[in-house]
Design a protein around this nucleic acid. Sequence first.
DNA 1: TATAAGCGGA
Length: 659
Amino acid sequence: MPDLTSSLPMPNHYSSPSPRHTPNPRKQVWLKSDRHQRHQSKLASQYADRSVHMPSLLASLSLTTSFSQLTSVMSRFVGTGGNPVLSLRFMCSLLSSPPFTSSPSRSLALLDWMYNSTSSSTSSSSSLYPPSLHPYNLVLRTLCRSDNFDLACGLLMEMRSLSLSPDAISYSTVISSLCSAGHLDLALSCLPLMEEDRVRPDLVLYSTLMYLSLKLGDPSKAISLFSQMCASGVTPDLRAFNGAISAYCSADLMRDALRVLTHDMAESGITPDATCYSTLLSAYVKKGRFLAALSLFSQMQSSKVRPDLTTFNIVLHAYGQVGLAREADQLFWSMSRLGVNPSVVTYNTMLRVYGDAELFGEAIHLFHLMQKKEIEQNVVTYNTMIAVFGKSLEHEKASNLVQEMQMKGIQPNAITYSTIISIWGKAGKLDRAAKLFQKLRESGVEIDPVLYQTMIVVYERAGLVTHARRLLHDLKHPENMPKDTAIKILANAGRVEEAAWVFRQAVKEGEVKELSVYGSMIELFSRNRRYKNVVEVFNEMHERGFFPDSETIAIVLNAYGKLREFDKASALYSEMEEERCVFTDRVHFQMLSLLGMKGDFDEVDRLIEKLGKDPEIDKKELRLVAASVYERANRLDEASQIYDQIRNSDYITDTLEAS
DNA sequence: TATAAGCGGA
């Protein structure tokens, strides 16, 4: 983890107000440089406890607007005998009531007053009301709640410099509000400070930080926090485990996610709930591993974990994707019996499942059933049904639905438009499609990349190449859209030269913001066999510290192979493995085939053995790949041996299934 | 804290 301590605002920060937060006009008031000397470790017990009428005191304080006014009200409580009149507890209740809780400057002023209050009768300059940790934490809370993070961090630093060590409460106050405001780096920079102060982050704090890292798309940070948490002896709870599962899934470390779910949790005596399963299920589905998802679902059922609505929705979708519409149908109609009522999402999913399976009658029936049962229909419902009618070639019905949704007050979105434009294009209603597209362009809304691409494809298919080219030409100098978007459209349209040109401009101007742009360029170059360019783009992204996804790694490995740069391929493979980035079968198989091309069969055998032990890897596919590697190298004996193994294991599974 | 919808093609 980088050293983030330096990014914490230090006390001198106050003089230059950050543009992001409203500057505090009175911040100089409490930043007296003599505070260090003034601070005395006077104990709370030395405060005398006199009864003061709190409401009336607050009433007079609420009228005060300035430090001097506050001082004059409070000065009544500076006794002459050197004894403070108010108890520490009283001071704290002041700090936790309005107007102090609603005004950061006022609460800081009161803290200041506590410092500065000295008895007039004694010559000593020690404070009558030395604030302890508790009042500091109260002020921290007030600052954080009003998003004054500069001041809060500064106050934290001040506490440390006064050797009033911030405690777990101070840190969790600051960190959790930094997290909810999205300042992850600042929040994480508190961790080394906590270590210095010997404050151990607790479960909630770790959890907060993990979830924020996840939200900001940094799963490896979340994973490292999780390990740190476990190493420091904090036992994760259900929520923390779910965060870990989700982090491993986003980092493409499915094996580790599965291990947490099926092993680590049980070891900690925590039973996974439906959410934990759903997290993993949806990760499998996102990666297209539908069978893995369905098998996890049956494992979930045998572990007697009751699926909830989300689980059902994910599984119905997975059934549909593997073409098991009947199974989806069965599960769908049994849901209410299992105590879970389908939601709009469920209905929408089923509409799609029926549509994909060309069960148009069922889709239409379900769509009407929703209306009869008065189930809310939304833009997704309509978009799905429009696509269903498009697929069944009923263009008029599709067009009518666009009207119908608008009449019901459901606004069409970019997805609606690209769906209907594509349908019209296929139906030969070119003018209608072009007219709608033009209307959308003129309406000034930011044009969506897919919508743009849809129209280009419609023109190209109709043979109107000049029209298509004109649209593409506009993208060379994108004005209404980020360069990233233009590059992605050009890359998707296969326009190598234009995409490369805009990409180089964007790189030069530092305008490449999205990781996926590199992926699109790498894929585009690879498709066009421009392997040198593939490697160039990869190096560019690597230098910027971006890590590619598995798909991209596989493409880059392939490019190295074409360029016969086998050592560079091996180096990339090991580096990514160390970074724990490589993990789909495709990457491993790609590497295997490169080693075969290189003729390094010692390494081939070693990798086959290693992959053979990996429970995540499909063994039959591994054998098929291995056999073809040997075959291509003309080592037919080894190849046929592997084919025998495949036949044997098929025989074993067949007999097992038969019995 | 997990879930649904668009283009297209090597």
